[in-house]
């Protein structure tokens, strides 16, 4: 006699909690064969705005944490993801229709990217900052700081987990907080990643994951005055030029869409895209 399995309810991940969409809407997630897998929450404008509020509240703590601490927390995500490899491989196989080897390679690469970015947390300032030899009695130092709240449209193609991780990890390194719209057709690993984040010492609100329609949610994020940067990496199929035009009203920093397996490839420049350079002039006494 086969045991009857207990399916999971996939919800949003906002402010460290797993709420349903306030709209009460869900949409069917299907396997690559067209079988029913789950009812994912269909996030609304209100959910996106709640996520921005959560991200803004979490910003001070995360940006103010020591770089060593942020690095350890990001590394902790890799540790927990490693422990849950089997679950992610299962979800990826059923959602994306790849074989075990392909799913496993994707999870491995996602874990390795967390580790790679974790190591940057206490180094990017050294690499991207500067002591500046100004002509005068001043100690002049330039240091990159987090931009603030970053809204991300996750890659919508194959490799849902890897795309998501590749987009959110670099934004977290410097101390930004994130609102991410997950892969619409393959959202399961996004919510499972939320479960990993919730148990990885990542403070609630630092990463907020909204599932649903990017076309519906993205415009609200692009125009939201409390969002400082917009990563359109996965918005290639949306009217992303219109999103970029909306983002100009509040002078958001915008990254353009990328496609293919190299989308959001690991790079220091992805960390720096969500930083602001602060230059401080300290007056020296003249002895």
């Amino acid at each position: 006699m086969n045991r009857l399995a207990i399916p999971k309810t996939y919800k949003l991940y906002i402010g460290g909690k797993f709420p349903r969409s306030e709209s009460g809407r869900v949409y069917e997630v299907l396997s690559h064969k067209g079988d029913f897998l789950a009812n994912a929450a269909k996030g609304s404008r209100k959910d996106a705005r709640d996520a921005v509020v959560a991200a803004r509240s979490a910003l001070g703590g995360w940006a103010g944490a020591t770089a060593y601490n942020r690095g350890q927390v990001l590394y902790r995500i890799a540790e927990l993801l490693e422990g849950r490899r089997a679950q992610f491989i299962d979800e990826i196989m059923s959602c994306e229709g790849v074989n075990a080897a392909g799913a496993s390679a994707q999870v491995d690469e996602a874990i390795d990217r967390w580790v790679w970015y974790a190591g940057w947390a206490d180094k990017y300032v050294q690499v991207a900052g500067n002591a500046n030899p100004v002509s005068g009695p001043f100690f002049n130092l330039s240091v990159p700081e987090p931009t603030g709240v970053v809204a991300i449209i996750a890659p919508q193609g194959a490799e849902s987990l890897l795309g998501l991780v590749s987009a959110i990890a670099p934004a977290l390194v410097a101390g930004n907080t994130v609102v991410v719209v997950a892969n619409e057709n393959a959202p399961l690993s996004a919510i499972s990643l939320g479960e990993v984040l919730a148990t990885s010492d990542v403070p609630g609100g630092v990463v907020n994951i909204v599932t649903g329609s990017p076309a519906e949610i993205a415009p609200w994020l692009a125009t939201h005055a409390d969002v400082n940067a917009l990563d359109l990496v996965g918005a290639g199929d949306l009217d992303w030029v219109e999103l970029q035009i909306s983002a100009a009203d509040t002078l958001k920093r915008v990254l353009p869409p990328e496609v293919g397996a190299d989308a959001a490839a690991p790079a220091l420049s992805r960390i720096l895209a969500f930083t602001e350079l602060k230059t401080v002039w300290h007056t020296k006494a003249i002895l």
């Binding site: 500046n132 100004v134 001043f138 350079l277 602060k278 401080v280 002039w281």
Partner: peptide, 30 residues
């Protein structure tokens, strides 16, 4: 983007200059 401690309005070609938020993006100098 630029903070002056016990001075103000100092500029130097080696010192990056530019804003946060709606003061723009990108740096000039350095």
């Amino acid at each position: 983007g630029v903070i002056w401690a016990n001075t103000f309005n100092q500029f130097d070609p080696s010192s990056p200059f530019g804003g946060y938020k709606e003061s723009g993006y990108g740096r000039e100098g350095g």
